[in-house]
């Protein structure tokens, strides 16, 4: 996972729900990239056309509230968003993002510190957010080690792959 990123900010308010991120009607999809084109279509219709790879989302409290849909962080990731900075995250969204390896940063009062269109640099290891446009820098909340380890492993699916491989090796040794 990339530890340092720099990008342009898309700013959102409080309680951005999973239907804002990806409406329920698009969850059943046979094409993940096509699905991601509907990201934020009801609340930020211009996002689909104007987003650029490496952009960063900034939001207030309770980002991603609502459903358990893994598609929510997945479409954000598939739209090229490098990371999210918010004041807090809903539990299921946080869980899914960790599992998918989408970096989440918790920054107190993020809404007041960063504006739409600002250029921001995030250093995940140092726990630092630098607002290049405003010339300010802030410390972020520390990500628990347990969650960092899942990130470091490349997400939960990668963890499963490693654990499966270890199990199979063990079984092979027992048979031989």
């Amino acid at each position: 996972m990339k530890k340092e990123m720099n990008g342009r900010v898309w700013k959102f308010g409080h309680n951005v729900d999973t239907d804002h991120i990806i409406p329920t009607k698009y969850l059943i999809s046979l094409d993940a990239m096509e699905q991601s084109t509907h990201c934020f279509e009801n609340v930020r219709p211009e996002f689909g056309k104007k987003r650029r790879d490496g952009d960063i989302l900034v939001a207030g409290r309770n980002f991603g509230c609502g459903s358990s849909r893994q598609a929510a962080p997945l479409v954000i990731k598939n739209r090229g968003i490098a990371c999210i900075i918010a004041e807090s995250y809903a539990r299921l969204f946080l869980r899914n993002s960790v599992n998918l390896g989408l970096p989440l940063v918790i920054l107190k009062d993020a809404s007041r510190k960063i504006n739409e269109g600002d250029e921001v640099t995030v250093d995940l290891l140092k726990g630092l957010v630098v607002n290049q446009t405003q010339g300010t820098s802030y410390e972020t909340e520390k990500t628990p080690d347990f969650l960092m380890e899942i990130y470091e492993n490349g997400g939960l699916e990668e963890t499963i792959a490693r654990k499966m491989a270890a199990l199979k090796t063990e079984e092979g040794e027992m048979q031989s």
């Binding site: 459903s67 358990s68 893994q70 299921l92 869980r95 939960l156």
Partner: peptide, 29 residues
């Protein structure tokens, strides 16, 4: 793998929604 899995708390179970990859992990292990 559905947010409303918390429904079974009515019976006194620790019951909670998770994501699809969580479901995959739990199905296997």
């Amino acid at each position: 793998a559905d947010s409303h899995t918390c429904t079974y708390g009515a019976l006194g179970a620790l019951s909670t929604g998770m994501g699809s990859t969580d479901m995959l992990y739990a199905m296997v292990f």
